[in-house]
Design a protein around this nucleic acid. Structure first.
Length: 277
DNA sequence: TACCAGGGCCTTT
DNA sequence: AAAGGCCATGGT
């Protein structure tokens, strides 16, 4: 179900036309690391072990080769298509800086990724740059993920990663982060970290954070990223070097009231706006 | 509270 | 082409 129900089946494809969905911005604004643009301008990647190609046309966004069932079950939640971003952005415009951010970065949607993938990806992100993060994640998936045909691989399960061990991860060249990835994989695989519970709406951000920081190499920032991008906690608020700068320069007296409840989405607009301006 | 931990991208010289 | 700064950080 989409808030503004506006999709049609076009042969093998689903075409949607909804406000505030810029595919390139959404997939390349630093929240996910497994999407890339092909030569003809399409976007291709893998999520939930399903390869997907997206195409922006004048009729809307085409989900190539996707059934209605897969669209509803997988891609509507992944691309947060049930949320009314126009209403959200209107609310954000009550703040001066945010008003610029949502105008200049119009079309960003917050992706609802798999919890384990988000956790692992943001452990890899620490003290690292985006091109290299993508490289490490790509090598991890090729090394331990399931081959899905063509050049597509699933994100490896925590069990597979834990079994590989620190030495087994050497080929992905994650550096000092390898030991953190293994500790995370072990704690998720043995149930010490229970994403089923963290995913429950009644589990608070603080509760989730307290669980996640038990993992070596997971501090406040990586925990907040995992909750925001992987656990549907849209009020989680990761503070990296860019957001720290924004807080110091633009919000010395604290965050505006108009983002309460969805602070993480506001953060995504501010982060990308600051980084690209 | 500093400083250190892989490695490589990217800008500057 | 070589150098050096920097990077969606956390541990010690």
């Amino acid at each position: 179900m989409i808030a503004e129900k506006n999709f049609v089946k076009n042969g093998e494809n689903i075409v949607i036309n909804i406000p505030c969905f810029n595919v390139g911005l959404t997939l390349d604004c630093g929240q996910a690391f497994r999407w890339s643009q092909t030569e003809n301008g399409d976007w291709h990647g893998v999520a939930f072990s399903r390869p997907l190609t997206l195409r922006e046309t004048e009729n809307g966004v085409e989900f190539i080769g996707v059934t209605e069932e897969e669209f509803e079950k997988i891609w509507v939640p992944y691309f947060d298509l049930d949320r009314d971003y126009n209403a959200l952005c209107e609310r954000f415009k009550n703040d001066e800086q945010l008003s610029k951010a949502v105008t200049e970065c119009y079309g960003i949607r917050l992706l609802r990724q798999e919890p384990w993938e988000a956790l692992c990806s943001f452990i890899i992100s620490q003290n690292n740059n985006i091109p290299r993060i993508k490289g490490i994640v790509d090598r991890l998936c090729r090394l331990l993920g399931e081959h899905l045909g063509d050049d597509d691989y699933s994100f490896p399960t925590p069990e597979r990663v834990a079994a590989a061990g620190i030495e087994g991860l050497a080929p992905i060249r994650a550096g000092f982060r390898a030991k953190y990835i293994i500790d995370a994989a072990q704690k998720v695989a043995n149930g010490e970290i229970d994403f089923e519970k963290i995913l429950l709406p009644e589990t608070s951000i603080d509760e989730g954070r307290d669980e996640l920081i038990k993992i070596k190499g997971v501090g406040e920032k990586v925990a907040q990223c995992t909750l925001l991008y992987g656990c549907g906690k849209v009020d989680a608020f990761p503070i990296d070097v860019w957001v720290k700068r924004i807080l110091a320069e633009d919000y010395p007296d604290g965050l505006p009231e108009c983002i309460s409840g969805t602070r993480g989405i506001a953060q995504q607009y501010l982060f990308h706006w600051k980084r690209t301006s």
